[in-house]
Structures are given as structure tokens and as C-alpha cells.
Amino acid sequence: MSEQEAKSANIVPGSMVQAGMITRYTLLDYFRSRRFAILFVLVLLISALLTVVFAWKRPPEALLNPLAFYSTWWGTSATLVVALAGIFFGGDAISSEFQNRTGYSVLPNPIRRSSVYVGKFVAALIAASIILVIFAAITVVNELYYFGPNVPVEFWESALFAWVYLLAVLGFTFFLSSAFKSGSYSILVSAVFLLFGFALIEMIIQDLVGIEPWFILSYGSGIVGNVLQVWCPSLLSASYCVIGLPHVTTTATTIGRQVITVTSYNAGNAEGLVIMVAYLVVTGILGLVLFERKEFN
């Protein structure tokens, strides 16, 4: 082979480099298509709604201090934004390769399926992270307006937890996307689980059965909001208040002559992180195994 021929010879890149190529072109497809734009607009709408409500109603409990602000604004909506981002970017990430037949152009090449899976996962993570950062930035800007430069450290903790939750959500959506060949089904099932399915199962297990729902993703992601909450064991003395909810809280409610005791569980920070990372690892690997075995019939 001459020097010219050697220079011109195709040398198939390594698998990780190929994964990076898939990431690049998938991101390009996201940003050019309406997918990113629609989610961007949705997040702007959510942010605009919150901005208007806060400005109009000036809720006193939310404007007590910066922590209360973040607990009300970010703590209640960050997980929704994460779920939406996971559904948008992960819901049909793998199933679309079958349904839209893009897999027929990419996979009959010297590239492993794992490179495609990892590449698309990283692209979904980058795109979803951008959305989360935009929402976080709008939140912080609003807080600066009300309180000046006084961002509590708990917000950064909560933001980190939200990002870990995003990783777990993407692992879960990629798993569902690998399980189905239809993008519609995988998006629908993802949405059902992430928007209310997990929360419903958590409530049933916790409130009706009375056991700690440690295996439910929404229980783990509860730390996103929990870390911003202030919990006072006694209403009589504020000096005993702590930041973050306790692991178990018991509430007694009187209904007529009956006193009903409800036990609620709240994941601790470490526990919540373990649950979310476990979801990422288990569902992420299961999704990859399914994709490796799936056939283009």
C-alpha cells in the first residue's frame, strides 16, 4: 500500500469514539427538529406561570425566606421538568430506530449496538440537562429578584439530586424504549409511569399497605424537594426546626371519634441517591441487553 493509499485507508474508529459520533449527530437532530423546541417552550411556559403566580399572589409562606422560595418553586416542579425531559428525549430513543427505520441506515455498519445505545443516551442526557439548567436559571433569577444574591446551599444539593433523578429517568425511559418497537407505546408507558404511575404506587404502598416504598423511583426522587423543606417537630418551638424531612413521620388525624394514624416515609439523601442510581444502573443495563437482542424483523 502506498503512502497515499495508507492515508486514504478507512480505519474504523473505536467503539467509544463511534458513540461520540452518534451523540453528536443525535444532538444535531434534536436541536434541528421540533422536539427540543417544544420542550423548551413547555419549560418556559411552566416558568412563566410560576413567575406570574408568584408576582400576583405573593404567597407569604413561599416568600418567607430563600429556602421557602426554592422549596415552593423548585421543589414542587423540578421533578416534573425532569420527567418531561426524560419522556421527550428518552421515550422513543431506541424504539424510533425500529419504527422510523433509522436503525437500517446506522446498524448495518461496523458499529456495535452498545455504541449506538450509549451515544443516544449521552445525547439525551445533554439535551435534557440543558432544559433542566434553563429551568434552574429562571428559578434562580426569580429568587434573586425577591431576595437578592442569597442562594442557599440546599438549592445546589437539590439541583444535583434533580440531575441524578434525570439520569435515573433516562435509564428507565431507555429501558422502556428498548422494550417496545413502537415509539408511541414506549412514550405512553414512560409518561404513565413518570407522571403519575410511580406516585400512585408509592401512595398505595405507603399509605394503604404501610411499608416503606424503597423500590419506587418517585420515593427516591422525593429528596429533590425534601432537602429544601423545613420540618418542625413542635409547632411551639421554632428552634427545634430542621432542614429536611425525617425518615418517618407519623400524623394522627381525628375523624369523628376515631383517631387514624398515618405513617409517612421520606427517603434520606443517601437512600434517595442509592434508589435513583440503582434505577439508572439496572434499567440502563436491561435496556442495553434488550436492544442487543432485538431484531429488525
Binding site: 449527530y25 444535531l28 427538529s33 437500517y104 441506515s105 448495518p108 455498519n109
Partner: peptide, 30 residues
């Protein structure tokens, strides 16, 4: 090996050039 199996599709928001660049990159064309 060059292949054409069934009726493949490329990511729709990519241009022809970008879609073929993707394949070229995957295949290690300098």
C-alpha cells in the same frame, strides 16, 4: 461492506451531507 437493506431512513432533520458524514465518520473515512 457497503449495505442497503430494506428502505433505510436517516435522522430527518439532518441534511444529505450531514447524514452521509455520519456514516463516513462511523466507517472511519479520513
Amino acid at each position: 461492506v457497503g449495505t442497503l437493506i430494506e428502505t433505510p431512513e436517516f435522522y430527518p432533520a439532518l441534511t444529505t451531507r450531514e447524514a452521509l458524514y455520519m456514516i463516513a465518520d462511523i466507517r472511519g473515512i479520513p
